[in-house]
């Protein structure tokens, strides 16, 4: 693993407050990738073997809805994470993730990280805490959108 990769991983907001050893272990499963606008980072139903720490660009998360085509549910950008399905069986993507512009990210091999997390509980705990925090933020944002704040709430 190069120091350059470790520096990139360490600089990503997802890694904030992770200890040196955890950063090294994560960096050992990481590689730097770029996606051209329009290309897929992952496709619904495919094997979820990777997750992505976004460094630049925007990614749309979408699902295919019969009769409506591909519906974008949310967009994420630099500093965000794409992909949770590597963490829980059956390790399959549940949505499409597509680059909206030139996307630069760190791709982390999920299988590699799962093995390291099993043998190193401190890394496992740190990762799960981080993932839970991010999931909580996303859940709260989704709840807010369910409130339909801008909708027409007149009593009919």
């Amino acid at each position: 693993m190069s120091t350059a990769m470790k520096d990139l991983v360490e600089a990503h907001p997802f890694m904030t407050s992770m200890n040196e050893e955890s950063i090294e272990l994560v960096s050992g499963c990481a590689r730097n990738v770029v996606f051209a606008p329009g290309s897929l980072l992952c496709a619904e139903g495919g094997d979820a073997d990777t997750f992505y720490l976004l460094r630049r660009g925007q990614v749309s998360i979408s699902a295919h809805v019969p009769g409506r085509g591909s519906v974008v549910i949310e967009t994420v950008g630099a500093g965000d994470v794409v992909g949770w399905s590597w963490l829980v069986p059956p390790y399959r993507w549940t949505f499409d993730a597509r680059a909206m512009d030139a996307v630069g990210c760190i791709a982390i091999d999920g299988a590699c990280l799962r093995v390291k997390a099993l043998t190193n509980p401190s890394l496992g705990f740190a990762l799960l805490s981080k993932v839970s925090m991010t999931l909580l933020e996303r859940l709260q944002a989704t709840r807010m959108r369910l409130l339909d704040l801008y909708g027409d709430h007149r009593v009919k």
Binding site: R68, G77, A141, M144, R145, Y150
Partner: peptide, 23 residues
């Protein structure tokens, strides 16, 4: 700009307005 519900013509951001703050 961001919207809560995207349509097929929309190629911008989708999500809460707070997601626009960080970047």
């Amino acid at each position: 700009l961001t919207v809560d519900l995207a349509t097929s013509e929309w190629d911008g951001r989708v999500g809460l307005v707070t997601t626009l703050l960080a970047d």
